[in-house]
Design a protein around this nucleic acid. Sequence first.
RNA 1: GCGAGGGUGGCGGAAUUGGCAGACGCGCAGGACUUAGGAUCCUGUGGGGUAACCCGUGGGGGUUCGAGUCCCCCCCUUCGCACCA
Length: 878
Amino acid sequence: MPRIAKYDFKKIEKRWKDYWQKEGFFKVDNADANKKFYYLNMFPYPSGTLHVGHGRNYIIGDAFSRYKKMRGFDVLNPMGFDAFGLPAENAAIENKTHPREWTIANIEGMKKQFYEWGIVYDWDREVRTCEPDYYRWNQWLFIQFYKRGLVYRSESFANWCTGCETVLANEQVIDGRCERCNSAVIKKKLTQWYFKITQYAEQLLNDLEKLQYWPERVRKMQFNWIGRSEGVEVEWTIKDSGKKFRTFTTRPDTIFGVTFMALAPEHPLAEEFITQETNSQRKREMQEFVQKSLQEGEIMRAAADAEKKGIFTGRYVINPMNDEAVPIYIANYVLMEYGTGAVQGVPAHDQRDFDFAKKHGIKIRCVIDAPENQGEVNSLSKDKGRWESEGGAPRQKELQAAYESHGWLINSGEFNGIPSQEAFRKIGEHLKNRGQGNFSVKYKLRDWLISRQRYWGAPIPMIHCEKCGIVPVPEKDLPVLLPDVPFIGKKGLAEIPEFYNTKCPQCKGPAKRDTDTMDTFVDSSWYFLRYISPKDDQKPFDTKDVNRWLPIDQYVGGVEHAILHLMYSRFFTKALRDMGMLNFDEPFARLFTQGMIEHKSYRCSEHNWILPQEVKEGNRCPHCNRLLQVDMHKMSKSKLNVISPQEVIDQYGADTERIYTLFMGPPERDIEWSTEGVRGSFRFLNRLWTLVLKHAKKASEAKGHIKVGEFTGAEKKVWHKLHATIKAVSEDIEGFHFNTAVSSVMELVNEITVYTETQGKKANYALVKRAFDDLVLIISPFVPFVAEELWRRLGHDDAVLKQRWPEYDTRAIESVDREIVIQVNGKVRDRMVLSPEIAENRVELEKRAVAQIQSRLDGQTVQKIIVVPGKLVNIVVR
RNA sequence: GCGAGGGUGGCGGAAUUGGCAGACGCGCAGGACUUAGGAUCCUGUGGGGUAACCCGUGGGGGUUCGAGUCCCCCCCUUCGCACCA
């Protein structure tokens, strides 16, 4: 037996790395594709070096694309970079460089990493959002949106990140803190640009139904985020002034229970009341309260258990239903951005109002009685004070909490005794008829604030002229280039006069450019369209080609984008469709969200995060010997718990990293990176290599065809396993079950190993050859390097990617002997191995099973025999 | 609080329509080869029992010849949303 060369992954990987790229296996011609498949990974932010956690996303994509390619699809799998954004500015300040240099260097580094991983993209289609040939179209689209009324400028209270010194979209505020830097977010009154995404709220909501191949939870998240609710807008009149304002309520049936009114601190009336207040002390108190509420911003006010604070304005408002006057408060729990910024307080039937009322000694009036009291409604409605705590001690009991469910109306005048759902409609109509309200639908979804006071982003293409007002930059003057000046740090374009001083396109007089840049989510809301015609300098994308290639057949990325990016992209798609630039409603037909890779992280109470290799024995800090806190966290540079792909590649090769990443667990789940697991995958590749090389020569010289009919038992087993594996792997890849796909291939390798070891020289090499060929092909999406190498060693001279994916033969899968289980009272007692014909024959199965197990049945009465053909026989005895 | 996942060996995880629980891999144990091995290869490996067998999928009930899988109740856990009137 000749010595087998060891698995020299370095040599092998070097040999094939360039090959796929050079041959352009994943280049597709827009016009030339017949069976299109648009696969897309979310493009990365070029933050620097990638770790093995990032790798998961791209490895899945590459494996899937290779599979689809071998299935005969014209696969488009492009890649690009979400290259604008704040981290580049921060890094630039830190490293005394320019955001552009930092970004470009990172992009180059990341492209090299893709190459090391054996990941093949069509780089001719690369998109970089920070390049003028991309953001030019960002600006162009902004202007088109503006012309269609989808962009507006408005002064309002915006989320202001105190760390980044810029405004944030609602979606970027997490628990009152900045999504990126975790600094406190406050409310600041600013004039900003908005995209009118709310105009599409209804469609964004309804079309979720079309996304049946999206993970249910992502749809749910979007559903909740849009947050549609039906209710009634009610018009109220301020006592003594006659001035009117509106509230929104989803429970108009409780309107007789209104015992106070609450305004958001930002509400215009709040300001008005303060201005008009003559009592100087009250004036000051109100001022202070409003100011403090705004400063607390989202952090304090967002917490559900935060204290409900408020202040009486000294004013009253008239209830349109019963002409009662109730006090008006300013309350910190009322949000200006939702509904009308004013809430009618019904303490008896809303927990928040209840808490507020208790705190401020406001009376509580029950107007809904629980449904179980149905029979008493009439008497209850007469017994006006029964549940009421106003005017002295409550007659029955004091309320402990608000009753928020439905029931029957009481204390509600002519509406007493009506079920609350019905009262919703009746009271709504009543108000409508009297011109004091109307039915209304509100959304939690807010318009998308896209202004950012930063440098490293696409400039907003607008000009402010004193004479002409706001004028869009003429399309022929696009792009509005980012000024190429030495980077000046934090304040952005507003500090660069040579940028903002310009001429008005209309009157030619002196004017100023808008100094805001766009939220980078604008960039990523349409990049998947640009991939179709990345070089087009006449338009953002080619409508005809886009309509042919989209929707994207498979989109893959992290769940963290479940709301922001995916919602914005859906909005863009719908807006572009209405502009006639597209003909589809939804951009991503199928979505898969992959989980994160985690790794142990070590933290010292004194020295913060510690590198794993520095940790001393017993999990102690290398600096102070304190016991470290050990936790599992997703890999991140800041926690010092990243594994670099290069380490793995140097030690075991890219194929090992690839197959381990796919094998480690279900791709949708978060999972811990295991160094031992990596070694196991490496061992497997060694076994694969040795097995094939040991027999490659004989196999490739094997003469004659496979004669299935003449197979021995052992040969049949291999034949069966081969086809069963092809089936399993194909189905698993289609379903994104890469972990089980890999384990199936491992089983096949084990099976062939057993066969060749036990048969020795008697082995059927025609069969072995066929098994090797198919094995190498089905494993190739996972480990392309070693597969390409083995393919050549098996005597082929054409690329693996040019081969067709093996087909399985159902007969081969079915024709193997079956092991039938014999149970007595549901417990396995014996087995028998039978040919497929007998195993499928009920009568025969029962007969044989009973015969075989007879000795065990002595003295017991057989009550019943259950036969499951091909599986088992269960004999029930007593 | 609301919503959605998830609880299976020492670990990651497998198990069509209910039909052999623990595939595959890690780890561990024993052995082989080695000057050596944290390399490689082979064998074994859910728990208990000499054995026949018994017990085992978070806990408790139920349906069924048969339940990880279906139904009811409970516990734990992860994630998302969280004063949206």
